[in-house]
Design a protein around this nucleic acid. Structure first.
Lengths: 113, 113, 113, 113
DNA sequence: GTGGTCTAGACCACG
DNA sequence: GTGGTCTAGACCACA
């Protein structure tokens, strides 16, 4: 995995996990701390910190000896929350530049990539 | 001014200035370092650093005793650059969640705020 | 049964058993390891560990083929010990916040739940 | 500072800080991470973790280069929250042993330590 | 084998 | 000088 060196790695891992959950690549069990650490090439502590954050946000649960898993209702909640946040930030950012909602919609309509 | 504590203040000030330029609230003269520092409630050093960055990015020019001003072609360049970056990030973020361009456009169309 | 994830399950089970003894819901015979494991939804090993602890603390006795039982004087001893510990912890915790015994007593008097 | 080896040190530090705030021994500025680490004899990372937790709980704020401080309304909120939690736990624990509110109140009235 | 905690030591950018 | 991040490596108790 490639990391943006300007952002904390543990936050990038956290986001990656959340995206995998929303894309349904992770349905229940998360990789173990050590396995993911090896996979992405970082220290296990760094992955553990991302996992701690996810659990604090009520997205995952864990138990020593049992592993880490996605909580029951996390998927649908996550999907909705993340899309909303991204859209809100987008609108807000363009508002800050003085664009109107009409102009924003026109810009998006013309995207063809 | 409210600052997001996860991002360096000097970068938030820099962005604020750029937004004011794009919104044409600043047309030529920037506030003095001291005045802006007082206005947003931070150390003058922090504002000075933002100003240094803006000059390095060729957006502003300055001379001792003459203050700081927006360079000639900065406005149109800035406007285009910032909008592009915001839109690209937006599309990329939703792609990462598995959405298609069609779905993204539908979401934006339905915004009514 | 609901478990506090910050405490070892076997300790929570141990406590649950002790509470049942003090509440006289268990007078002599303890449930078998397997039955209790099924009842509370954990691995029998975890229950077995709790039972081992109880026996080590001289609260229960067991013999193969005869099951596990509460020892003769355990009830009154347990009752006294547990209440004392809870009360001491309570007083100590409020002392740590700077409250006086008088204030603590007033708080308790006003409870009406 | 003495630590209970059965509980995570960072949680004990967190609690200690909260108690100091409620007792008004800390009014605004917290000790720096490194100073507190030296004072209590643990690794700075351990103190940093406690501080992170406090900030997550909206009790403190911090900035790199500026230090850590108690947030404006944290004191009164903390005082109330901590007392409530301790009292609730106390009542709940004795309920679990089968005591009635009347019995609990009698026990507390008789404390003379 | 699992997550959790802790130490030691390093580096970084902010203010 | 400050908090924040990261690595390396160790130990622990739980399941």
């Amino acid at each position: 995995m490639q990391f943006d060196k300007n952002k904390p790695i543990y936050l990038q891992i956290k986001r990656e996990i959340k995206e995998r959950i929303v894309r349904k690549e992770i349905k229940k069990e998360l990789p173990t701390v050590r396995n993911l650490a090896k996979e992405v090439g970082v220290n296990p502590n760094t992955v553990a910190r991302a996992y701690r954050d996810l659990e604090r946000d009520n997205i995952t649960g864990s138990r020593v000896g049992k592993g880490t898993w996605v909580k029951g209702r996390a998927y649908s909640k996550l999907q909705k929350e993340m899309v909303e946040e991204i859209v809100d930030d987008f609108i807000q950012s363009l508002y800050s530049l003085g664009l109107t909602l009409k102009e924003i919609k026109e810009i998006v309509e013309e995207i063809d990539d």
